[in-house]
Design a protein around this nucleic acid. Structure first.
Lengths: 232, 232
DNA sequence: GCCTTTTTTCACCAGGTGGTGAAAAGCGTA
DNA sequence: TACGCTTTTCACCACCTGGTGAAAAAAGGC
């Protein structure tokens, strides 16, 4: 705990490039990220993380404290980048299209940053998305964790959708988001199930195929729910 | 807790009718199911299962062997019932409506049995669905497990949809199923996230609200994907 | 009653768990 | 060089893990 507090050390100095200090911290986070994504929080031991990072077990506690704090550090590292990318994307869409916004446009602005990052951001991001998908489906502490990190940008999505369809009820918007996030996270986590299910016809790593379908799918579903609610 | 209470009732001081043999086996499965659903495979110890079932640890190994075999037994117990219910539902729909089938009708026949079972089938089913949702999002061995237990009925869905929309490409059908199952499992697992996200406006336990929206949502999404593919 | 089989308990193991404290190794600065 | 600070290693702990073998208790057939 005292060790964890020292993480806010003077970080401005220019250092020679050796695998030490902050570099090692990132290495630990990378290993933890991959392992947590594959096996879940309880399926990974600090010793496994240390071993894969090429580091002593005690060093993990020195940098991060308890195991759960390490997990949170993994989760937090990319959450900010993610939230900012989505927020920027949605704001840009709103400013560019103004009154000509569409439901599919808003949803695209919300989802596409994640697809782009997963495709271009390096291998760590794929692990990260698999991790988030798992947390998203964990009843015990998943909901709370997701809320803590991702609620604001979701509210931004819902509010923007409300602008596009002012007659839509918030209840419907929230349920549609629930459906959307289930599809989106499963697609991003690339579990490989669609590969065997489709007998090689589809590949879960083919995010271009996801892009070509998911936006239209969610948008049409959203419109249908709103229309049905307005009619009933 | 519940299990221990039941056992105390049937095994009271003077009563010869005690929960034994197969009853006890079911009790263990119930406890394991709830715990696995909440904390995942690695988040549960055999001792926790034994404790909640009011049973000695060794008895679990006596009945089920290794921990993983216990998990598979939990998974298998309800899978058959589930698959049969869905298969019957879809066959009935096909026979009743014949050429007048709709996409929304097929999807309803596929999903609604799960909603009904979750609503009417007792508390164990909710745990079970949470468990399946978690496995569905587990990269390491989730895809394989899901395929082993649930692939046939999914192929039945896809084939039936192909009858309704003969021009649809299988690629699209499989991707739409992927989206559908992500939404469906998240809704069925009742993580409670929508409750806090919507600030009390929605409740994840409100499966009637899911029923009123999910079928239309998925059907419209499906139609949009098929239409777009046919146009391009 | 007795004897056999199944079910349940108990004691226990070998190895692994998260975590700690102190010593050691770097390393910039004087 | 020596000093002070951070980073890394090492030995270690108390407890828990999945799992086992044998004894004890029921259950059942005769």
């Amino acid at each position: 705990m005292t060790a964890a507090k020292t993480r806010a050390r003077s970080g401005g100095r220019g250092r020679p490039s050796k695998a030490t200090g902050l570099d090692l911290k990132e290495t630990i986070l990378d290993s933890a990220e991959g392992l947590f994504a594959r096996h879940g929080f309880h399926g990974v031991t600090t010793r496994q993380v240390a071993s894969e990072a090429g580091v002593d077990t005690a060093l993990i506690h020195y940098y991060f404290g308890a195991k759960r704090e390490l997990f949170d550090a993994v989760f937090l590292r990319r959450a900010d980048i993610l939230n900012q990318a989505r927020s920027v994307s949605m704001n840009a869409y709103v400013e560019t299209f103004g009154p000509r916004m569409t439901v599919e446009g808003v949803i695209t602005a919300f989802i596409d940053p994640l697809l782009r990052i997963s495709q271009e951001g390096g291998g760590g991001w794929k692990s990260y998305f698999a991790l988030v998908a798992q947390v998203n489906n964990t009843p015990a502490w998943g909901g709370e964790t997701m809320a803590r990190f991702f609620d604001p940008v979701v509210h931004q999505l819902v509010d923007t959708l409300k602008i596009v369809r002012p007659d839509a009820e918030y209840r419907d918007l929230y349920w549609c988001y629930q459906f959307l996030t289930g599809s989106m996270m499963l697609a991003l986590s690339e579990t490989g199930r669609i590969d065997s299910l489709s007998e090689g016809l589809c590949h879960s790593s083919d995010l271009e195929a996801v892009r070509a379908r998911l936006f239209a799918y969610c948008a049409a579903g959203f419109e249908a729910v709103v229309a049905r609610s307005g009619k009933a």
